[in-house]
């Protein structure tokens, strides 16, 4: 088991997940397997290898600094639970 319950709880907190004890047990086991699987990569000697940031051997394409988007607020806000004066409303963030 490469992951303990405390670590799993920390990950769940960061991901804003609420898990039951049973679910923790299951996640710890599954996540540990994933980590062990990926850990096999540690066997490779990477001393002289430049870390790869992306699997594609290409560089980022750049776009010209042009405004190409128009105001579509009404359309996008049809998805929102609550909107007032054009603002998306969410449960109060500051107490």
């Amino acid at each position: 088991m490469s992951l303990n319950k405390n670590q799993a709880q920390h990950i769940a907190m960061l991901a804003r997940l609420k898990l039951s004890d049973d679910e923790y047990a299951e996640s710890v086991e599954k996540l540990s397997k994933i980590i062990d699987f990926v850990d096999q990569l540690s066997a490779v000697d990477t001393t002289d290898i430049i870390p790869m940031a992306h699997p594609l051997a290409a560089a980022q394409r750049l776009r010209p600094d042009d405004v190409t988007e128009v105001d579509n607020r009404d359309h996008y806000q049809q998805n929102a639970n609550e909107v007032v004066d054009g603002l998306y409303l969410v449960p109060k963030v500051l107490e």
Binding site: E82, V84, D85, G86, L87, Y88, L89, V90, P91, K92, V93, L94
Partner: peptide, 12 residues
């Protein structure tokens, strides 16, 4: 925006 929406915050 935290003021003026009672139990909500407004997001711009």
């Amino acid at each position: 925006i935290h003021e003026g929406f009672n139990a909500s915050s407004g997001i711009d």
